[in-house]
Nucleic acid binder design. Sequence first.
DNA 1: TAAACCAGTTTATAATATAAACCTAATATT
DNA 2: AATATTAGGTTTATATTATAAACTGGTTTA
Lengths: 95, 95
Amino acid sequence: MFKDLDPLLHSQLRLGVMSILISAVEADFVFIREKTNSTAGNLSVQIDKLRDAGYISVEKSFKGKMPRTTCRITPEGVTAFEKYVEDLNSYLQKK
Amino acid sequence: MFKDLDPLLHSQLRLGVMSILISAVEADFVFIREKTNSTAGNLSVQIDKLRDAGYISVEKSFKGKMPRTTCRITPEGVTAFEKYVEDLNSYLQKK
DNA sequence: TAAACCAGTTTATAATATAAACCTAATATT
DNA sequence: AATATTAGGTTTATATTATAAACTGGTTTA
């Protein structure tokens, strides 16, 4: 009846990160932090988890002299996100 | 950009319980346990939380000699569920 | 009458999310 | 030129949550 929901995606902040990345080519740390209204510490941890799962790739570079962290969704991330959305539908059928 | 998700509903098991109850007049403990494929202990805890929040009502009776726990969704529960589904949509927009 | 079973509850533990504290370097202030 | 402030994070500690294990009270079966 109900599909198991990917626990990595069933988290408000990680889902927000994935939601941003699925509709953008890339997004940097500060942009994501602002859009998700999260703290840097929490975002840092959640980005690590998404990267460890292979759902996103993370690239560190410099914008001028300042560090910059850029995230992109991977093909596996796209697949996982789409599956999550589909699985979620098993819970949301209206009466 | 993203709506905060009601933490009480953003839980696989509690969402499953609410999903069952929104489309049924009532459902008993055993039925819910089977449909959600959960353990009795976990379900007991999650049902308490939903009841404490006023999202469901819980009635204890006997079916013959055996105890029976029947759950129903409350109007507040319906409202909360509908809001959750709507808020969730802010995360699920497809590219 | 003992063993197994049903319908749960309580409690302990594991997992997770979040915030607080910290780090390194750049820029602005006195 | 020192000192404070800001930027862009990371690490670590704590609070919350989910889950499983153990237990309770009663019932049915052998």
